[in-house]
């Protein structure tokens, strides 16, 4: 059994990893001509944008739901239920992100682009798993 201090420490580490993920690239695809599409929590950057493509603004704001779950994790240090809500919610959000990553990788390969997973996504997944372990432990301690 994990004691409460260890469980709280796991949640804290999960929050720190998640917060780090918010400022690092999640994934990117490089195409010919030096064009690169870099997806982050707070927007998508197109390096060496070719002319007017794409004309629309790529600002997914994927960070919004993750910021909410991270806030719940912080609240989970005092309220066990908030920790569970934050960790489970973040796992759900990561599930959607995983579906997007697999899809984007498929499109990149099809268009002969070079797809790469960024450290942001690695930190996000790690943070979610660590926070989940902490949240389950906190919930068990709470009875």
């Amino acid at each position: 059994m994990i004691g409460r201090p260890t469980a709280i420490a796991l949640i804290a580490v999960g929050v720190v990893l998640t917060a780090t993920a918010m400022v690092l690239p999640w994934y990117s695809t490089a195409y010919g001509g030096g064009v690169e599409v870099v997806v982050r929590a707070w927007g998508t950057e197109i390096v060496n944008k070719p002319g007017d493509w794409p004309a629309g603004e790529l600002s997914p704001w994927y960070g919004v739901p993750v910021a909410v779950t991270a806030a719940l994790l912080v609240a989970g240090i005092w309220v066990a239920r908030a920790a569970v809500a934050g960790a489970a919610g973040q796992a759900g959000a990561v599930g959607v992100t995983a579906a997007l990553v697999v899809s984007e990788r498929g499109h990149a390969v099809e268009q002969q682009g070079d797809f790469a997973v960024g450290f942001g996504l690695v930190f996000l997944v790690a943070g979610t798993l660590v926070a989940l372990a902490g949240a389950v432990a906190v919930q068990r301690e709470a009875g």
Partner: peptide, 29 residues
């Protein structure tokens, strides 16, 4: 409770993604 929270996380992230797809389509095309 955990399942409901996970479902909320899925719905939240999917909503944000769709919002982006819709606004990008409207502005870009």
């Amino acid at each position: 409770f955990a399942g409901a929270a996970a479902l909320a996380g899925v719905a939240g992230m999917l909503f944000v993604h769709l919002l982006n797809v819709i606004s990008f389509h409207e502005a870009g095309n």
